[in-house]
Nucleic acid binder design. Structure first.
Lengths: 329, 329
DNA sequence: CTGAAAGCGCTAACAA
DNA sequence: TTGTTAGCGCTTTCAG
C-alpha cells in the first residue's frame, strides 16, 4: 500500500546535477537561473513527479501565502463564496485552507486550527465571532469578515449593502402594485438586523406599514413563517435569505397559495437554489464571486502592506427578477 | 494590525526553566515527565497562549496524523459526512484538512493539494476519480473512498448497500399497494448504476415492470424528470437522492399532483433536507455519522498497520418512513 | 526524569 | 548564475 518517500528538492537537485537552492529558485519561478538550467530542472522535476512539500515551504518561508477560511458546510451561499475564494486566491498566487464550522465545532475551534497552520490571514465566512475575541484575533493577523457587518474596528469587512438590497426589493414590489409586504426576518443571523432595518425604512418611505414575522436562516424557518402568515397572508413576502424563501414557498404552494398569483416572494443571496429552473426565485443578488475577489484582494493588500483606504467595502446589491413576483391579485 | 511572532516551544521552555524536548513531551501528553513539571509547563504554556505550530509538527513528526478529505461544497450529504469525519478524527487524535472540489477545481487538483500537505491518508467524498490515477494514488498513501463503489482494488471502500436500499424502498411501496413505481436515476453519478440495478431487480422480484427515467444528482434533474413523468405519472417514484426528490416534489406539487395523495415519493440519503419539517421526505438512510466513523477507523487501521479483513465495508441502509409515502389512490 | 543534538524539506541571505 | 549556509519550530533518538 504505502510506497517510498516522495521525492524532495534534494532528489531533484542530485538528479539534475545542481544545488538545492537552484532547484528551489526554479520551482518557485523566481528569477535567478539560466534558461537552460531552468528547463533541465523542470524536466527532472516532473520526471520524478516532484511536488513541493507545503509544510516545509510554509515553515521556511518568511511570509506564508496561506489564506485561512472558515465556513459553514451546509449553507449554499457560503459554498459560492468559498468557490470564489479559491479562484481569487489562485490568481494572486495564494493557497486556501478551509476550516468548517459544524454543530460540534464552533467558530472558535475552526479559527484555532487556522491559526495552528500559521495562516497569513483569516477570511471569515462562518458564523460571527464574539467581539472581544475577534479584535484579539485581528491583533495576530489580518482578518476579513465576509458578508456581514462587524462591530470590531480592527477587521476588514467586505459585504453587500443590506439596507439597499431590501429597498430594491421593496421598490420592485411597490412598483408592481403591492401594498401589503411582509418580511420574514433572520432572527439574530448575520445581516438580519440590517435587512430588517432596511425593510422597515423602505416601507416607511412608501408610507406602508411594516410587518415583520419571526424567521431564521433555514428552510424550516421560512416554513414556520409561512404557517404563521397563513391566516392573513400579505400580497408579498420578503425573506431573510433564499433558503428561508424556499421553505416558505413550499408551504405556500402546498396550502394552495399560488406564487406569484396570490403572493409574491423575494429571496436574498441569489445562491444556486434561487436559479433552479423550477424555482426561478426573484432575489437580491450578493454576487459571491465579486465579494470573494475583493476579500482576497484585501487580504493580499494587508499582507503586502499596500495602503487601504476604506476598512469596509460595501457592494451595491442588485435585484434579479425571476418568476416569483408579479402584480397582486 | 500584525503583532509579534507567536510563542514557540522554546519560549515556553525558557519561561518554565526546562528544555524544549520536555515541553514537547508535555504538550503532546505523552509519558516522560513528572507530574509537577507537567503542571508547571502546562501553566506557562497557556499563560503564554502557546499553540503548537502544526506545520512544524507535521514536518518533524515521523507519521503525520493528518487526514485529507475531498468534498463537494454544495452537496448536503457530503456536508454530513464531513461533519462526522471531523468528530471521528478528533476521537482518534487525528486532524482533518478539507479540500473542496468546485467547478474550476477538479478532484485531481483537490487531491494534489492534499498530497502537498503530506497527508497520512486520503478520504474521498468528492466526485469519483479516474481509475488509473486512483490506483496510482493508493500506492502513495492509504485511500478510502466514501459512499460509492470503486473499481480499484487498491483502495478501501466504506459505503452503503445501494441495491439493498432500493429494495427496501420498493418493498415498502409494494407493501403499501403500489404497482407502478418509477425510478428517476442518477445518470453517471456515484452509486447511480447500483441504485438503478437494485431498483430493477427489486421490481422484477415483485413481477413489476421497471420504468427508469433519466435524472441526475441535483434538484433540477428531479424537476426535469417530474415534467417528463407528467403525461403518464406512476403511483410512486423512487429518486436517486434527496436533492433530486426535492426538485421532483416541487414540480409535482405545483402541477397539482398531490404527494403522497396521488404519487408517493421516496428519496435517498436521509440528508438534512429530508428531515425538514415541511418536507418530511420518506427516504433511504445512509447514516453519514456511521460511515464517517468507519472511514476514519479504517484510515487509522491502515496507518497503524492493524490487520484489516475486508477491503470494502458495506453498511445496510434502512428506510426512514416519513410523510411522502402512502397507499395509492 | 531530563537535556543535548540531529534532522524533517524547504527558503533566503550571502558568497563564490 | 550558482552554491553554501543558516535557520523555520517541532519531534525524536540517545545520553546523562
Amino acid at each position: 500500500m504505502n510506497a517510498s518517500r516522495p521525492p524532495t528538492l534534494e532528489d531533484v537537485a542530485a538528479r539534475a546535477g545542481v544545488s538545492r537552492a537552484l532547484v528551489s529558485i526554479v520551482v518557485r519561478g523566481v528569477p535567478g537561473a539560466s534558461e537552460p538550467t531552468r528547463q533541465r530542472v523542470l524536466e527532472v522535476a516532473d520526471e520524478l513527479g516532484y511536488r513541493p512539500d507545503s509544510r516545509a515551504r510554509l515553515l521556511a518561508g518568511r511570509r506564508s501565502r496561506l489564506l485561512g477560511v472558515t465556513l459553514a458546510l451546509d449553507h449554499p451561499f457560503h459554498a459560492d463564496l468559498a468557490e470564489g475564494l479559491y479562484s481569487a486566491a489562485e490568481r494572486h498566487g495564494y493557497e486556501v485552507v478551509l476550516s468548517a464550522v459544524t454543530r460540534d465545532r464552533n467558530s472558535r475551534r475552526a479559527i484555532d486550527t487556522l491559526l495552528d497552520y500559521r495562516c497569513a490571514a483569516a477570511l471569515l465566512i462562518g458564523p460571527p465571532v464574539r467581539e472581544p475575541w475577534l479584535s484579539a484575533l485581528a491583533e495576530r493577523l489580518p482578518v476579513i469578515v465576509l458578508g456581514q457587518r462587524s462591530r470590531s474596528r480592527a477587521v476588514d469587512v467586505i459585504r453587500t449593502a443590506d439596507e439597499a438590497g431590501m429597498r430594491l426589493a421593496v421598490d420592485h414590489l411597490v412598483a408592481l402594485g403591492h401594498g401589503e409586504i411582509a418580511h420574514v426576518d433572520g432572527a439574530r443571523g448575520p445581516g438580519a438586523a440590517a435587512r430588517r432595518g432596511g425593510y422597515r425604512s423602505a416601507m416607511r418611505r412608501h408610507d406602508l406599514t411594516p410587518r415583520v414575522v419571526a424567521g431564521g436562516p433555514a428552510e424550516e424557518d421560512g416554513a414556520a413563517a409561512a404557517r404563521a402568515l397563513h391566516t392573513a397572508p400579505p400580497t408579498a413576502v420578503l425573506t431573510y435569505n433564499d433558503r428561508c424563501a424556499v421553505g416558505l414557498l413550499d408551504v405556500f404552494v402546498r396550502s394552495g397559495i399560488a406564487v406569484p398569483g396570490t403572493v409574491s416572494v423575494v429571496g436574498y443571496d441569489d445562491s444556486q437554489v434561487a436559479r433552479l429552473p423550477y424555482l426561478r426565485l426573484t432575489t437580491v443578488s450578493q454576487d459571491a464571486a465579486q465579494l470573494a475577489t475583493l476579500a482576497v484582494r484585501r487580504a493580499v493588500a494587508r499582507l503586502e502592506h499596500e495602503p487601504v483606504s476604506e476598512r469596509e467595502l460595501v457592494l451595491t446589491p442588485h435585484l434579479v427578477v425571476r418568476g416569483t413576483t408579479a402584480p397582486p391579485r
